[in-house]
Design a protein around this nucleic acid. Structure first.
Lengths: 392, 392
DNA sequence: TACTTCATTGCAAACCTTTGCAGCATCACG
DNA sequence: CGTGATGCTGCAAAGGTTTGCAATGAAGTA
C-alpha cells in the first residue's frame, strides 16, 4: 500500500428512518394535503392546525423530500455553476458568493469544473439541465452560438462573456484598463505594453480597446504582446520580450500573469517597480501577498456571483419550467427577461507601480488621476432591472 | 444606478419541451418499462430492441429525470461537500478533485460554505441530508459528538478530523512535521518554534506531538507559540514574538501563516532565510509564488478529495438509504464500513529555509535527512480497503 | 408430444408531494 | 329562515421512473 495507511472496521448502525408528510399527517390527525399546505401555503390553513402540524413535524424531524416536490412542481431549487477551473484563484470568491446568495433564497448549488475544456462545458450543461432550474456559466470557453443553443434547454446566465439575448454579468474591465493606463501615464510612463490573455476572451478584447484609446489620448504608445496563457507561466514567458520592447510599464491581462511577469523580470535582473511598473487585473488574494505587492484593477468577483444568482432566480420565478401541475401541457412560450449588468472595477494602487522616465519630480505617487473619483465603499451589488426597465 | 450599468430587454422563447421515458417508448414501440431497463439494466433487454430504444432516445434528446429516479430508488446520485471557507486556498484543489471523481461515478456535488461557523455546518448537514446520498465534511469545526450524531442522519465522511466509528481521510501531518523538524536540525538549527493553529484542530495536535518528539530526539529545543488564527494575519501577528524568542527556525501550522510570518519578520527587518528559516504546511499554489519561495510540507489535497468521495460511494453502494422499492419497510440496520485512511505528506524544499547557527560548513543544503526516502512520484491515491481488510 | 427452462416484455404499484376541486361548517346579511 | 360568502379541510390525480410479478413465446429436454 506504499505510502498510505488504511485501517478499517465495520459496524451495524440504525438507518435513518425516512419520515414523510404522511407520518406527520397521522401524528397530527389531519390529511396529508393539510400538512403540505402548512409548508407551501401556510395562509390557507387554520393557525391552530398549523401550529399543531408544525409541532408534530418538528417532533418527528420531518424534512420535505425535494425530489418528490421537484417531480410535481418542475422546480428543483437547485442551480448549476459551471467553472473553467476551480483552482484558479479568481473563481473561489465568486463560487462562495453565489453559493451563499443561493442558499439565502433556499437554493442549492451544484459546482462543476470543466478543466478549461469547451466540450466538458457543453456536456455539463446537458447533464445538469434536468436537475437544476438554471445554470451559471462562468467565463465560458465555448462559442456564443453554442451558448445560445444550450440556453433553449435550460435557463442560462453568463458571466464574463457578452451573449446577445442572454442575461450577462460583466465586469467593466474597459474602465479598469483605462484607469490603469491613466495611472501609469500620470506616473510618467510613455511606453506601455499590454499583456494580452486568451484570444477568445471577451475581457481581453475590451481591455485592448480601452487601453489603446486611453494611451492614445494620454500621449503614450501602447504595445500589445500576446495572446498568452492567462497564467503565471504565461506571464513569466514574456519577460524577455517585455525587456526587449523597451517599455517602462506593463498592464497584464490578470494578476497571475502580472505576478509571473514580475518573477520573470526578476530572473532577468529587471527590478519592479524601479525599472518597470506592472499592473494586474482581478485583485486576487495573492496580489496582496507577493512582493512587491501588486497594483491591480480589482474586479467585483463576489458581486458578480451574487448578481448572477439573482438574475437567474428572477428569470425562473416568473417562468416555471417544464410541465406544471396536473392540468399542464400548454408550455409553449415563456417570457424571459434578459438583462446585461456591468459591474464597476477599481484600481488598487500598491507597490508594483512607480515613477516612469517622464515623471515630474514634485508629483507624489498617490491617487490615480482617473476622471471620476471612486466611491470609497468599493463596488457594491447592483439592483437588477426587471421587465422593460432600462438604465443608462 | 451609481457605478453599475444595467440594460434590459425581454423576449419570447420556446420553452424546452420535457421529453420523458414515455415519449421514447411511444417512438420505439415498446413499453416504458423496457425503456427504463434499457438504461438501468441493459442486460435484461434484447440487443435489437436496445439499439432501437437507444436510437430513439438519442433522437428525441431524452435525459432521465433524476428527481423521479431518486424518488423511487431513494438514491439521489448527489453528494454534499461542506467546506469551512471556499476562499481558503487550501480547499479549491480538494473541491476540484472531489467533483471530478464524483462525476466519473455519475454523481454530482453540492458545494456549501460554512464561513467557519459550526452552526452553519450543522444546519447544512440537515438541509442536505434528504437530497444527497452522503456528505463530505472537510475540516469540520463542530464537535466530534455532534458529528457522530449527524452521521445517523446521513452517511458522512470526515476529512482532516479523526472521529471514532466514522470513515476519515487524514493527512499525515505528524510525519510531515517530523520531516520538517529533521530538515531544520540538519541545517544546523537548534532553537525552533512551532506556530500553532486553531486549538480544536486535529492537525494542530498531531503536528505538535510529532514536532516535539522529533526535536527532542534531534537535540533541538521546541518552543510552541499559539494557538493562532490559521491565516496570513495570524502569522504576521506573531512575528515580534518570534523575534523575541530568539529561535532561528519556525514551523508554521500552514502556508498562509508562514507567509504572513515572513511578511511580519520582513517588516521588523528580520530576513528570511538568512536570519530565520520558515517552513509551512499545505503547499498551496501561493507558496511557489511568494519570495522567498516557501519550503513547505505538501499535503495531498487532491488525493484527499478523491479518496473521500470513493469512501463515501463505497459505503453507499453496499447500503442503499431509506425505503427501497414497493415492498420495503424493513430498513432497520445497515452494515456500514468505516475505514480511516492516512495520506502521506512530503517535504518540499524551496528558498525559505537555510543554514542555521550550528551548520557544518561542508554540508550542502540539499535533500532532507528523513529516515525514509520519498518516492519521487509524490503522494498518490490509496486503495481503500473494503470490508474487514486491515492494513498496518 | 408434453413439459420445463429461459429470455424478453408488459403490467401496475409504489415513491412523496402538490394542487384543482369539492365538501362542509360557520357566519353575516337581508 | 334562506342565501351567499368565507375559511378550512379532504379527496384524488398527477408527475417520471423503477421493479416484482406475470405473460408470452421459443428453445431444449424427456
Amino acid at each position: 500500500m506504499g505510502h498510505t495507511r488504511v485501517t478499517a472496521t465495520t459496524s451495524d448502525e440504525g438507518a435513518a428512518v425516512p419520515v414523510t408528510i404522511r407520518d406527520v399527517a397521522r401524528a397530527s390527525g389531519v390529511h396529508i394535503s393539510t400538512v403540505s399546505r402548512t409548508f407551501s401555503a401556510p395562509h390557507l390553513v387554520n393557525p391552530e392546525t398549523r401550529v399543531r402540524v408544525l409541532a408534530c413535524a418538528e417532533d418527528l424531524g420531518y424534512r420535505p423530500n425535494r425530489a418528490a416536490r421537484a417531480l410535481i412542481t418542475g422546480r428543483t431549487h437547485n442551480i448549476g455553476l459551471i467553472i473553467a477551473d476551480i483552482a484558479n484563484p479568481f473563481f473561489p470568491p465568486l463560487i462562495k458568493a453565489a453559493e451563499s446568495q443561493a442558499r439565502h433564497r433556499d437554493y442549492h448549488v451544484f459546482v462543476a469544473d470543466t478543466n478549461e475544456d469547451p466540450t466538458a462545458e457543453e456536456e455539463l450543461v446537458h447533464a445538469l439541465a434536468k436537475q437544476v432550474d438554471g445554470v451559471l456559466l462562468c467565463s465560458p470557453r465555448m462559442s456564443n452560438s453554442l451558448i445560445e443553443q444550450l440556453s433553449r434547454e435550460v435557463p442560462l446566465v453568463v458571466v464574463n462573456r457578452q451573449v446577445a439575448g442572454l442575461p450577462c454579468v460583466l465586469m467593466d474591465v474597459g474602465q479598469g484598463a483605462r484607469t490603469a493606463i491613466e495611472h501609469l501615464i500620470g506616473l510618467g510612463h510613455r511606453g506601455i505594453a499590454l499583456l494580452g490573455g486568451p484570444r477568445s476572451s471577451w475581457t481581453n478584447r475590451e481591455m485592448r480597446r480601452a487601453a489603446s484609446a486611453a494611451a492614445r489620448s494620454g500621449g503614450a504608445e501602447l504595445t500589445v504582446l500576446g495572446p498568452n496563457a492567462p497564467t503565471e507561466i504565461g506571464g513569466s514567458a514574456v519577460a524577455e520580450q517585455v525587456r526587449r520592447s523597451g517599455v517602462s510599464a506593463v498592464l497584464a491581462y490578470n494578476d497571475l500573469m502580472a505576478i509571473g511577469l514580475i518573477e520573470g523580470l526578476d530572473a532577468l535582473g529587471v527590478r519592479v517597480p524601479q525599472e518597470v511598473s506592472v499592473v494586474g487585473v482581478d485583485d486576487i488574494t495573492l496580489s496582496r501577498l507577493t512582493r512587491p505587492k501588486l497594483t491591480t484593477v480589482a474586479t467585483p468577483t463576489g458581486a458578480a456571483g451574487r448578481t448572477a444568482v439573482d438574475m437567474l432566480l428572477q428569470q425562473d420565478i416568473e417562468s416555471p419550467r417544464g410541465a406544471r401541475g396536473p392540468g399542464a401541457g400548454t408550455a409553449l412560450g415563456i417570457r424571459r427577461t434578459t438583462a446585461q449588468v456591468m459591474l464597476q472595477t477599481d484600481l488598487v494602487i500598491r507597490d508594483s507601480t512607480g515613477p516612469g522616465p517622464h515623471a515630474r519630480p514634485a508629483r507624489p505617487l498617490a491617487a490615480p488621476p482617473g476622471p471620476d473619483p471612486h466611491c470609497p465603499a468599493g463596488p457594491g451589488d447592483p439592483t437588477v432591472a426587471t421587465g422593460d426597465a432600462v438604465a443608462s
